[in-house]
Simulated scan of single mutants.
Amino acid sequence: MASVPPAVKLKEGRIEQLVLDLCTPDRRQDALLQLSKKREIFQDLAPLLWNSLGTIAAILQEIVSIYPFLSSPTLTPAQSNRVCNALALLQCVASHPDTRMRFLNAHIPLYLYPFLNTTTKSKPLEYLRLTSLGVIGALVKVDDTQVISFLLSTEIIPLCLRTMEIGCELSKTVATFIVLKVLLDDVGLEYICTTAERFFAVGRVLANMVAAQVEQPSPRLLKNIIKCYRRLSDNLRACNALRSCLPDMLRDATFTNYLQNPSTINWLQQLLHKVQGPRVAAMQAGGFDHMLVN
């Protein structure tokens, strides 16, 4: 067996010491900062965080300590950044295959929901909202029905819809991605389309976002919106409803000069084919093909 180089041992020892420092209040802030920076290069950080005595509890203590400031204008960027570093470590745990289900079984995502439940648009709160969405996004990135089923047992859909309405562009994009990943799972699609209330809640927010794209276009966001509509059309009742409530701006030439991504155009063509029928979709396809050529 090859020996571990001294430099690697030194780095690993430094990481382990930083993890231990999380449980020491006067060392925690620096440890959070350093570990959040190193989480991408130390592959075993997630299991180390999870299996170290008291570490997850210390991280959650950081998160809970900021709750009283969420409805107050006194939340500072420094406070927000510190908690965002803690959330970044939770994202690391949520991303790792050895800790993902333990993370879920401990119901740790629920600790993030107060950040998603805020309506204030201040930058410190927006950073908390975005970083929390990053944790949930890490969970759904790997297709797993267990993850989707857990999230659906919570308030994740209403919370994402709220962010899709009030968040910054990046927060909206991540929240829409989460809703899309839920929809792409058969359990998630069935859940959202089971009742008219759920379907129209999602449809209303998507339609408002489409309208907003005219004033403030975002290729990534529009792609996720179109994908959400396309996946909804796989449900027969939802597809029938979309025939009357799909925004006209997705049917006409509103985004002709804006849609440049071939995959986005393909998703839109599929959507129109299912909602409007092959004949109408084919008539519009010429315009999309022209966009692909140019």
Results as ranks from 00 to 15, higher is better:
L87Q: 10
L87V: 15
A88F: 11
L89Q: 06
L90N: 03
L90S: 01
Q91W: 09
Q91S: 12
Q91I: 00
Q91Y: 03
C92D: 02
C92L: 04
C92K: 06
C92S: 03
C92G: 01
V93A: 05
V93K: 03
V93F: 04
V93W: 05
A94V: 14
A94N: 11
A94P: 12
A94E: 12
S95E: 15
S95P: 06
H96K: 11
H96Y: 12
H96V: 13
P97C: 10
P97D: 11
P97Q: 08
P97A: 10
P97V: 13
P97T: 11
D98P: 00
D98T: 09
D98V: 06
T99P: 05
T99V: 08
T99E: 04
T99I: 12
R100V: 15
R100P: 07
R100M: 15
M101F: 14
R102F: 10
R102P: 00
F103V: 08
F103D: 01
L104V: 15
N105K: 07
A106K: 11
A106C: 09
A106Y: 08
H107D: 13
H107W: 05
H107R: 12
I108S: 04
P109E: 04
P109A: 03
L110R: 09
L110N: 05
L110P: 00
L110T: 11
Y111Q: 12
L112R: 01
L112M: 09
Y113T: 09
Y113Q: 07
Y113S: 03
Y113P: 03
P114A: 08
P114Y: 11
P114M: 10
P114K: 06
P114T: 08
F115S: 03
F115N: 01
L116K: 01
L116H: 01
N117K: 14
N117C: 14
N117W: 08
N117R: 14
N117I: 03
T118D: 05
T119E: 10
T119P: 00
T120F: 12
T120N: 13
T120P: 00
K121G: 03
K121I: 12
K121E: 08
K121C: 06
S122P: 02
S122I: 10
S122Q: 04
K123Y: 12
K123I: 15
P124N: 06
L125M: 08
L125W: 05
L125P: 02
L125H: 06
E126Q: 14
E126M: 14
Y127V: 08
Y127Q: 13
Y127F: 10
Y127K: 13
Y127N: 14
L128G: 02
L128Y: 02
R129L: 13
R129C: 14
L130V: 11
L130W: 06
L130G: 04
L130H: 09
L130F: 08
L130D: 06
T131H: 07
T131F: 05
